[in-house]
Design a protein around this nucleic acid. Structure first.
Lengths: 224, 224
DNA sequence: TGTACATCAGTGAACGCGCGTTCACTGATGTAC
DNA sequence: TGTACATCAGTGAACGCGCGTTCACTGATGTAC
């Protein structure tokens, strides 16, 4: 297998002493690429990852205890990346209604632009038994939701939302965004609303943002 | 393998001449059970189905062209069953607002009581390239949504909803229900709203059902 | 500066497994005469 | 009513495949002296 077949990249150069850790990153990158392209967790096999990284399969065991550990690591990465995207979209925005909208828009944009990455986040096995205390990275999996609750609270405090149950209304907004994001990715033949039209409905209908404050499309008001 | 191991049911009796079709139903039932129990499409392997049905693996080829054909058949069954559940819940109800609610409640109930069956319906491969003309059963996959649009229209015509875009608002309601149904099944550690509280938000916030007409919980009004 | 040696990144062959599918077959059931 | 035979539901063995994992190993890199 050391002979380079046509199109297949030449075998990688061995890392120097003390730089074995580099391979871990390369393995993760290869696994992420596979997941990004296929969108299916099962296709991230140990051997497929090894092939893509240009190494032999057993080499992976120096860096991950087993196959599942690779997928777990990708999921942690994905949540981190997802949360960073939400933060970058919201932190610079000061108006609370505009910030709420910016966060929601970033959520839908992430799901639209990286559907396979998004699917990974909320797939069954990755949420099911998330033990918030047992695993060090797990908190990152809830930070996005906390951001939403806080944004909605800011709107209420600014008098822009009439929500009287932050947790319940933020939950309703989240499930609507999630349902929209996943179904749109799966059922391509359907007259989906554009993100903004969907978010108008979510912000006002579920977040109880007052119409006079509402952000329509990309414009930034408010009017009150 | 003909010797009966402990706990394993005795090998099935051969069907009589002309009754070979019975086996098709038994195969489907076995496959459905596997899916219902494991919740994962991949575990419906040809060999696992054969084991459960008490037959040899090659016997399946007399009834299904290949493994995928089994899964396709299950999916068609599942959509039919799903739509029947929605119809049974809505047909007897005459008040339009109560009927809209009854359909939505049946939707969430189906997803709650048979989560693995529900997941199957809207999983990627089952919607992705649904060619509405090519496959005879495919229409059943959209009947549920049509029911929702019609229910909402009835509410508008009765003056109980102010929706001015039936398709868009019904879509918003659907994605919210779907997001709620799937996330609730996957993320068990979360303070989920009960179905009724969620549906209050969906009916009023997304379906634009007037509060004075709204059905709260299981009571049936209306007040207008 | 030169050399022996420990370290460690990475390999190749092999294992047993379950899979989808094929093939030639078996043996009970029903039918023609 | 009896018998030869066609039909057909279902079988058992075998195939090649990719998988996760193990094991003993190789050979370049760095270090002690």
């Amino acid at each position: 297998l050391r002979v380079s077949k046509s199109g297949v990249p030449a075998p990688r150069e061995r890392n120097r002493r003390g730089e074995g850790g580099k391979l871990r990153a390369e393995i993760l990158a290869a696994a992420t690429e596979i997941l990004e392209q296929t969108g299916s967790e099962e296709s991230v096999t140990l051997r497929a990852v090894a092939r893509r990284a240009g190494i032999s399969a057993p080499s992976i065991y120096a860096h991950f205890v087993d196959r599942d550990a690779i997928v777990d690591a990708i999921v942690d990465d994905a949540f981190t990346e997802f949360f960073i995207a939400l933060q970058e979209a919201t932190v610079p925005v000061t108006d609370p209604v505009a910030r709420l909208r910016a966060g929601c828009a970033a959520y839908l944009a992430f799901a639209r632009e990286r559907p396979n990455r998004y699917r990974l986040l909320f797939q069954r096995r990755n949420l099911l038994d998330t033990d918030l205390d047992a695993r060090p990275m797990a908190k990152i999996r809830t930070d996005g939701f906390d951001l939403l609750v806080n944004s909605l609270r800011d709107c209420v405090e600014a008098g822009a939302s009439t929500s009287d149950d932050l947790l319940a209304d933020a939950t309703a907004m989240w499930v609507a965004m999630h349902g929209f994001a996943t179904l749109r990715a799966e059922l391509t033949i359907f007259p989906w609303l554009p993100d903004d039209a969907m978010l108008d409905r979510i912000d006002q209908g579920l977040g109880h943002v007052r119409p006079s404050y509402a952000i329509r499309g990309v414009s930034l008001p408010p009017a009150g």
